Amino acid sequence: MNKTLIIIAGPTAIGKTALAIKLAQHYKTEIISADSRQFYKEMSIGTAKPSIEELKAAKHHLIDSHSVLNQFNAGDFENESIKIINELFINHNEVIMVGGSGLFINAVCYGFDPLPVASEEVREKLNKQFEENGITFLQDKLKSIDPEYFAQVDRNNPQRIIRALEVYESTGKTFSSLRTNNKKQRPFNIIKIGLNSDREELYQRINLRVDEMVKNGLFEEVESLKTYQHLNALNTVGYSEIFDFLDGKCSREEAIEKIKQNTRRFAKRQLTWFNKSDDIKWFNPNQFEAIIQYLNSIH
């Protein structure tokens, strides 16, 4: 029987985890997380990791698997995921992958183009520009150099922006132009399911999730990670805003509102990314039966 990787994609807070667990139970299989931060064991509340109950409901891979002290990029994710997928296919006909990182999902589906390694000099220069001028300066720089990647990237993630600028300053070629080379052929089927709802409902989900994170101790989690504030993994939505609060740059209420605003913007960029794929079949998160019917009809 053909082996199939079922990918659940879509914007943050849409309900991907809940659907992935239902599908994993339906197919009696396991889940691989395609989230660009959930593999960091130090970051839990702000990354909306599956709860203990959810992790018990279906076995997950690449959750709490790495430390923020160790960089883990899309190429690393591709290698580890393919290894796990091949192992799972020994005993399962279907494997579920779930997440909102389009870059990581593409790495598994098509392979990740090996990108040039920048010199320490270039990296230090860009990091210094970030420290002295802030992220807006780097955002404007990337927008003028590579508008295609700028439209897709998580703009609140300095690591991603600096990486793209490193590539350009090292090669004179844009990050987007180097990512679209030869696609690898995978020895298994890939089916992509996208989850979305109307914008008002999505934004309400995001706002409620942020309130729930705060209630569950997000501020305390970020404060406990203050020592690691300089790491790129923590210069992301839900963390950088609270570091600003801890540094006296804004009030607690302003930090919460900024997290909601930046998460809504991030969700919009995720949808922009996924909408460029013509092989995603879109559903509302509560259409489980329709999703099963669709999957049955094509594999």
Rank of each mutant, 00 (worst) to 15 (best):
E30N: 07
R163C: 14
Y239G: 04
L218R: 00
I45W: 02
G46N: 04
L225R: 09
E221D: 07
K192F: 09
F288Y: 13
I145C: 03
G194N: 06
P116A: 08
S51C: 03
G102C: 04
F283S: 03
S51L: 03
R205G: 08
M1E: 12
R123M: 12
K56R: 07
H230V: 13
Q159N: 10
M43D: 08
K16T: 07
I242S: 05
P116F: 08
A48S: 14
T174W: 10
F39V: 11
E53W: 04
K268W: 09
N182I: 13
P285A: 08
S277P: 01
E42C: 07
I90K: 08
H61I: 10
H60N: 04
K41V: 09
S67H: 02
Y294D: 11
I90H: 04
L195G: 03
K215H: 11
I96Y: 01
G217M: 01
N93D: 15
Q293W: 03
N207Y: 07
V68Q: 04
I105T: 01
N275Y: 11
K281F: 13
A20F: 08
S33F: 05
K258R: 10
E120L: 12
G134Y: 01
I190Q: 07
N189Q: 03
T12C: 06
A107F: 02
L19A: 03
I145D: 09
T17R: 03
A13N: 14
V167D: 01
E220P: 03
Q129H: 10
E87F: 08
T136E: 14
F245Y: 15
N91T: 15
F266C: 07
Y228V: 14
S81P: 09
M1C: 12
S170A: 05
I82M: 04
E212A: 11
V95S: 00
Y40S: 11
D35P: 03
E30A: 01
S277H: 14
N182R: 06
S119V: 00
V98Q: 02
E166A: 00
I135T: 06
I85Q: 01
N207I: 06
F188W: 14
L88F: 00
S51W: 06
Y149D: 11
S177A: 15
S36T: 12
E94Q: 10
E257V: 06
D140M: 10
S297P: 05
I32S: 00
L69P: 04
P11I: 10
T136P: 02
D35H: 08
K215V: 07
Q270S: 15
